[in-house]
Deep mutational scan, measured.
Amino acid sequence: TFTSYQLEELEKVFQKTHYPDVYAREQLAMRTDLTEARVQVWFQNRRA
């Protein structure tokens, strides 16, 4: 599960791009204290 802060950050990036590159995902992962893999999976699920 994600915190409301994490979801907010993820959604913010999703609004800009549905396909963030690895750099964007790593920045987001650091900001949200998630792994890059978790961020990647979240985007895959969000796009589905």
Rank of each mutant, 00 (worst) to 15 (best):
P20M: 04
A24L: 14
E26H: 12
R25E: 03
R47L: 07
V13K: 03
R25S: 04
R46M: 06
Q15L: 12
F43W: 01
Q6M: 05
V39G: 00
R38I: 15
D33G: 15
T1Q: 12
L34F: 01
S4P: 14
L10W: 00
F43Q: 00
T3V: 04
A29Q: 06
E9D: 02
Q44T: 08
T35Y: 03
R47Y: 03
Q6P: 01
R47I: 08
T32D: 01
F43V: 01
F43C: 03
Y23I: 11
V41A: 15
K16Q: 13
N45A: 12
N45E: 13
V22S: 12
D21A: 05
A29G: 07
F43D: 01
Q44K: 12
Q15C: 07
M30N: 12
T3C: 06
Q27V: 09
E26R: 15
E36H: 07
Y19S: 05
Q27L: 12
L28C: 03
R38F: 11
A24D: 10
D21G: 08
E36C: 06
L7M: 08
T17C: 12
V13L: 15
Y5N: 09
T1G: 13
D21R: 04
D33H: 13
L10Q: 00
Q40N: 15
A48P: 04
L10A: 01
R25I: 15
Q27P: 14
W42Y: 03
K16M: 14
Q40M: 14
Q6L: 02
R47Q: 05
F2G: 02
E36Y: 06
M30L: 13
A29E: 03
R46H: 03
K12H: 11
V22H: 13
T35I: 04
E9K: 03
A48Q: 11
W42G: 00
Q27E: 14
Q15W: 06
T35A: 05
Q6S: 02
A48E: 11
L7Y: 05
W42Q: 00
P20H: 03
A37H: 11
Q44N: 09
W42R: 00
Y5S: 07
L7G: 03
D21T: 08
E8T: 09
L28V: 07
R25D: 00
R25F: 08
T32P: 00
K12S: 08
A24T: 15
Y19N: 06
E8Y: 10
Y5K: 10
R47N: 06
R47T: 04
R47K: 03
T3Y: 05
K12T: 06
L28T: 02
E36M: 14
Q6F: 14
T3H: 06
V39P: 00
P20F: 03
F2K: 02
V22E: 12
L10F: 04
T1E: 14
R25T: 10
V22L: 15
L7P: 01
F43T: 00
S4Y: 09
V22A: 14
R38T: 15
T32K: 00
S4A: 14
A24N: 06
V13W: 07
A48C: 12
A29F: 04
A24I: 13
Q6R: 01
T17P: 00
T32R: 00
Q6C: 03
N45S: 10
Q44Y: 10
R25W: 04
K16A: 11
H18I: 08
R31F: 06
E11H: 03
F2S: 15
V13R: 02
M30E: 09
T1C: 11
V22I: 13
Q27T: 08
L34E: 01
R38S: 12
L10R: 00
Q40I: 09
V41Y: 14
E9C: 07
D21M: 03
D21K: 04
L7C: 06
Q40G: 07
R25L: 15
Q27F: 13
L34A: 03
N45L: 11
L10T: 00
Q40V: 10
T17E: 09
T3S: 10
F43G: 00
R38D: 15
A48F: 08
Y23T: 10
V13H: 06
S4D: 11
M30K: 14
R31W: 06
R46E: 03
A29C: 10
Y19F: 12
R38Y: 08
E9I: 06
F14Q: 01
Y19D: 05
E36S: 07
V22M: 11
L34M: 08
Q44G: 05
Y23M: 11
W42N: 00
W42F: 03
F14S: 00
A29I: 07
A29R: 06
T32S: 04
E36W: 06
Q27S: 09
L10K: 15
T35L: 05
F2I: 08
F14T: 00
Q6D: 02
V41T: 13
V39D: 00
M30Q: 10
W42S: 15
Q44I: 11
D33M: 12
Y19G: 02
R46I: 02
E9F: 05
K16G: 06
N45C: 11
E26W: 13
Y23A: 11
R46D: 01
D21P: 05
V39I: 15
H18C: 09
F43H: 00
E26I: 14
Q40S: 13
K12V: 06
V22N: 09
R31I: 12
